[in-house]
Amino acid sequence: MSTETPSTPLVNFDNVALRYGTGTESILALEGLNLSIRTGEFVAVVGMSGCGKSSLLKLMSGLVRPTAGSVTIHGQEVTKPLGIVGMAFQNPSLMPWRRALENVILPLEIKSEQRRLHSGDAREHKEKARELLSKVGLAGFEDKYPKELSGGMKQRVSLCRALIHQPELLLLDEPFGALDAFTREELWGVLQRLHRETGCTVVLITHDLTESVYLADTVHVMSPRPGHLVYGAEVPFERPRNLDDRFNVAFTQIVADLRHHIAKGPEAEAV
């Protein structure tokens, strides 16, 4: 948990609706969505697949604009990408022609090109990336190509790329969904540590209720499409949390509670 206790939200969704496409083929992904996220908060959003969880992230990153309502960051309406977010997905989506270190540097490159800074930055970028990679346990793997790394390692590189430019807001879209259980647990630890060290605000989209409760301060349940938030649970456990916490009664109670709220969806029987 970050040490500050801010009062104004960093991110605010006010009665947001989002429609993809137009006419009869359009899809109403979100409707009537309200959400506010404090600075430094770790928020998880859970829900059935296809309920519009990823759209939530796209709205925060400024990649899409809401059809109705407003999304604000620092009280300012988000109308275009603000460059303050870092993103990672289920698929590590690294550039196969770049070594691990060069993949991590990408956001810094983009940012310095925007500021028209070129030479001189490169060494500093590399130093930063090296440091971050060693923090996630990848010291010695800087010069490996993605194809030479395991799935968990690639996801670590992807996390580093999301964090290298010290984003205020880290957006994670099921980042551990494709990993095996043990690798996933390991990366939970990595993410928890990074969150504590950087103090950045995290929004984690996940299907895994245990993961959400283990990592987040607040877990929101999203309804089936059109998505909106139907339930929120505060997770009171102290940090750092450890893997055995998962088996506490209080922990499983929160998980069961969340499951209950998701189960109200129409596809409940199928899950």
Binding site: P81, G83, F89, N91, S93, M95, P107
Partner: peptide, 14 residues
């Protein structure tokens, strides 16, 4: 080009 990678770049203002 992977859409996610494109999103990463666009979110940075590329």
């Amino acid at each position: 080009v992977e859409p996610e990678l494109e999103d990463v770049l666009r979110s940075l203002g590329a």
